[in-house]
């Protein structure tokens, strides 16, 4: 939670607890839809992408599909076309509009690029460089007097590069939704052992899945800006900001996912 959000919520709590919300009508200006691309390449998994459009805010919540969109991913001199085949993966609770059977087997340093075009002449391009995995050294916990435990995750930062991370924890399984998630950089502790803590949220017997993603800077910027944009909707102290995309010609993200994951069972 951002500090301004915390301050705001607390001040509201302190000042007045009346229900002062009401639904109002707002006329939004006409909106010209832009292409929205979301594509994550993951080692050992097929190429899959989602291509949609932006929606005017009060449009019906149906996904704005773009059936004539064509998606190509290129790497090492190869150009792979992803077929339009909207599907929903129940296991991951994720939908994809374009996919291919081609399996991603990139090595750190490999560059992949994406190109999305459609019948309206719109074109979105982007590229991603495969990063090395940053291993989690250890996951520890400490109990307080109420038998609640906090979690400590340790990893070592590479001093030779500017690094960006995303940290996530899940209870029992990643399918259950993250109960803690944030992004960080190494600009204050470059090359050092880094520890990430939590609040006293856990009890003996809890199973916790800890994930540490190594991010490209542009993906880090995308995550932060999307988070800022979400936060600005409903926080009067926040300055609304644009989403910083990793792609050009539209909105969205094209990146590769590299992460280390540990599952631990909390025990006294």
């Amino acid at each position: 939670m951002k500090l301004s959000t915390l301050l705001y919520l607390c001040s509201l709590l302190l000042m007045v607890s009346c229900d002062m919300d009401k639904t109002i009508d707002i006329d939004l200006p006409p909106h010209t839809p832009q292409l929205v691309v979301e594509c994550y390449l993951e080692q050992g998994k097929p190429f899959r992408a989602t291509v949609l459009e932006t929606s005017s805010y009060f449009d019906a919540p149906t996904p704005p599909l773009v059936p004539d969109a064509e998606v190509h991913i290129s790497y090492n001199g190869q150009r792979v076309k992803l077929q339009y085949n909207p599907t929903f993966n129940e296991k991951q609770s994720k939908g994809f509009t374009h996919s291919s059977n081609k399996i991603m087997r990139g090595q750190p340093g490999d560059v992949y690029s994406i190109e999305v075009t459609d019948g309206k002449g719109r074109k979105v391009t982007g590229y991603t460089t495969v990063l090395p995995k940053v291993p989690i050294d250890s996951v520890k916990w400490q109990f307080n007097e109420n038998d609640k435990a906090l979690l400590l995750t340790y990893f070592k930062d590479n001093p030779n590069t500017a690094n960006y991370y995303r940290y996530m924890t899940h209870r029992d399984s990643v399918r259950n939704g993250s109960n803690r998630e944030f992004t960080l950089t190494d600009n204050l502790n470059n090359g050092k052992q880094i520890v990430i803590g939590s609040n006293y949220n856990y009890e003996s017997g809890d199973t916790v899945v800890v994930s540490l993603f190594h991010l490209e800077k542009k993906y880090y910027d995308f995550l932060r800006s999307a988070d800022d944009a979400e936060d600005a909707n409903g926080n009067p102290f926040a300055q609304p900001s644009r989403v910083i995309s990793t792609v050009e010609g539209g909105i969205g993200v094209f990146t590769n996912l590299v992460y280390d994951r540990r599952t631990v069972i909390i025990a006294r």
Partner: peptide, 16 residues
């Protein structure tokens, strides 16, 4: 400032 449009970011597995 109000948003004029919205997008859906599905995010990675493990995130809603």
């Amino acid at each position: 400032s109000l948003p004029v449009a919205r997008i859906i970011v599905q995010d990675v597995e493990g995130r809603e």
